[in-house]
Design a protein around this nucleic acid. Structure first.
Lengths: 212, 212
DNA sequence: TCTTTATTGGCACCATCTGCCATTAAGCGC
DNA sequence: GCGCTTAATGGCAGATGGTGCCAATAAAGA
């Protein structure tokens, strides 16, 4: 039955691939962030972003429902790196040890310019209300992934309160550590800065267990 | 020298007291939330809120810089209750025990109608992007208070990473528990619902210590 | 009452975002 | 190449969000 639905005669212009679309979004994102950093979010109009990215304002608004969401494609690079490593967390390892082994915060699959841009955005989220909001919403979406992983690990349902709390706590750890590394990288990123990030997370995780 | 500054000749109409201003904000907040719940945030214009609250649109925008921030005065009632109880956390007690003794989630100083309204807002924050963002921002502000308390307790500076992580984690606990109680109270709040909230937090806190 | 200062309301204005429609681009069969 | 079909784009009008500016009013003290 689903076969029938899958069997599509496919006529006319095909829709662009999802990757293509993401690439386009990322491209616009880069231009937007550059402008945000240069003169602030409020002082950057959608029209200007569109012009910088070489599309019409109308299609710009089609790619991004709100101006602030321009930062998403870049910011997810950060969060996704963490998501991926958590997904690969082997059952027999402590989280700290796993992170030390496997977490390379952004180093994979991101150009140096993008790394700088991501950290710049994180810095911008302090002071720019709208960006902070977008940042927090994005983190919350990522929390669900963490919850899934934790649920599978503990055997509890993903909406169990213990699972969600742990996911939220881990997300908080990443948030604090990320804010720190972004601040530390204010004057240029070095490989050491990112290595330090991993260490920060370890420290933060240890701090977590002392809550009582 | 500060005396000179303090010594004010006081002429002309005096500014309204801060409490007065807060009361006004809260009043508008109630109207706004009623409209949000009834027909959604997007379908409620600033003009309508202003009209419902009996002020001009212009002064409405003076009280609330963004439409979403209308929910703040009500939502802070929830967060503030937690802040207050954490501030009063005696050194010799475990947090869980202190909460069991001293946390009465909203029951003090809030009318039944307001309690309903607060929980309604929390429910609205799922599904209403803008409200969720406002909610998360508000929580983050409250995190600073938690950090202060924890800093004093541990003797660490309030911006130490361990302190901020613990504050963020506690904030996460409250968030998850609050979302739960709001869902549970969907069909009317009872005293038991709120008592249950306290128990939820205890469970969540215990879940937190198992993060590894 | 007159003076002084704080709040309010009215109005003009730019920015954000949406709906609608014409235009263009990209595939496919011929 | 030419049509045919569908997807993406751009342009334009319009509602809403939100701000700056100024006049009007309200609340004090002299």
């Amino acid at each position: 039955m689903t076969d029938v639905a899958t069997e599509k005669p496919r006529r006319g212009r095909p829709p662009v691939s999802e990757e293509q679309r993401q690439r386009q979004r990322l491209d616009i994102s880069r231009h937007a962030v550059a402008l945000f950093a240069e003169r602030g979010v409020a002082a950057t109009s959608g029209e200007q972003i569109a012009q910088a990215a070489g599309v019409s304002e109308r299609t710009f608004w089609r790619y991004f429902p709100h101006k602030e969401s321009c930062v998403e494609p870049l910011l997810t690079k950060m969060v996704d790196a963490f998501r991926a490593v958590v997904r690969a967390w082997p059952r027999e390892l402590e989280l700290i040890d796993h992170l030390r082994e496997a977490y390379t915060p952004l180093l994979d699959a991101a150009s140096d310019a993008d790394i700088e841009a991501v950290l710049a955005v994180v810095r911008l989220t302090h002071g720019e209300r709208a960006l902070r909001a977008a940042y927090l919403m994005l983190r919350e979406r990522a929390e669900d992934t963490l919850a899934e992983v934790l649920a599978e690990r503990t055997g509890l349902p993903p909406d169990a309160i213990e699972v969600r709390v742990q996911a939220a706590a881990m997300s908080a750890v990443l948030k604090v550590a990320t804010d720190d590394v972004a601040r530390a990288a204010a004057g240029g990123v070095t490989r050491d800065t990112l290595e330090g990030h991993r260490e920060q997370i370890a420290v933060a995780l240890r701090g977590l267990s002392q809550v009582l």
